[in-house]
Nucleic acid binder design. Structure first.
Lengths: 124, 124
DNA sequence: TTGACATACAACCTTTTGGTTGTATATTTA
DNA sequence: TAAATATACAACCAAAAGGTTGTATGTCAA
């Protein structure tokens, strides 16, 4: 089934919003690890770690590969970069450099919002 | 009271993991808006929007300034950049360029984790 | 000095999250 | 083949999230 960009962004940042998951992601970015190997590093059940891996997987931050009886997880740097790109878009809004600002500003219902672009391009 | 770096990271990404909050942040990065002005843009109660603003505020992503009876919210680009920096650290782990990798890899309990650094620096 | 406006916040409700244990199934290995 | 290993997943639970309404309080305008 289809997943909207907003849904994927929700999933991305949600996946990153937990320290255990960030740590799992770090390890998986450094190299492949089986779920059991990952689980051994944390003070929680295997099933709990498995769920964290699933959350990361559904956010696209890691992929699993079957090898025999174990599932090897590896981080996907592309997803990481797309998260960074999203932050970059927000910073671009701050800079006021965006001209498709109306698209980004939830084009739907922009009622009663006069004030905009009150930033001067300080620093950098 | 003190808030650990991990707690702040949790708060940062958690704040970013909701589309309404991302939209509020976008508007606040583009310019100052009163909470009421922000609330008028969404199909939910004022109180709900107010809560979202509080979440963003506690994550450091925006600040509020009192002017008369209204509270003007403005996005803080520094927090946005610190989020980007965190993603950058993760990407650095992927690149294998990090030498303080042992610090980043949750130095505490690293039991039974042999495999690491299985990535070749592809692309770029 | 009353209203109207803008905010703050408590109390409450439902859904999601993050954890648990238990069970099932596939793959090794003895 | 039997036991051990690795994973998957269901069922359950407490706490947190995201929403609601209601109430209190400060500020502005008649």
């Amino acid at each position: 089934m289809y997943i909207s960009p907003e849904d994927r962004t929700d999933a991305l940042f949600h996946a990153l919003a937990d320290r255990t998951r960030r740590d799992i992601l770090r390890r998986s970015l450094a190299g492949e690890h089986s779920v059991t190997a990952l689980a051994s590093a944390y003070d929680m059940s295997f099933a709990a770690v498995q769920k964290h891996v699933t959350v990361l997987e559904r956010a696209g931050l890691l992929t699993k590969r079957r090898q025999g009886r174990e599932a090897l997880a590896r981080g996907d740097v592309a997803a990481l970069r797309s998260a960074a790109a999203l932050l970059g878009e927000l910073e671009a809004v701050w800079r006021g450099r965006i001209d498709r600002i109306d698209d980004l500003l939830a084009g739907e219902k922009a009622q009663g919002d006069a004030p905009a672009a009150a930033n001067q391009a300080t620093e950098e």
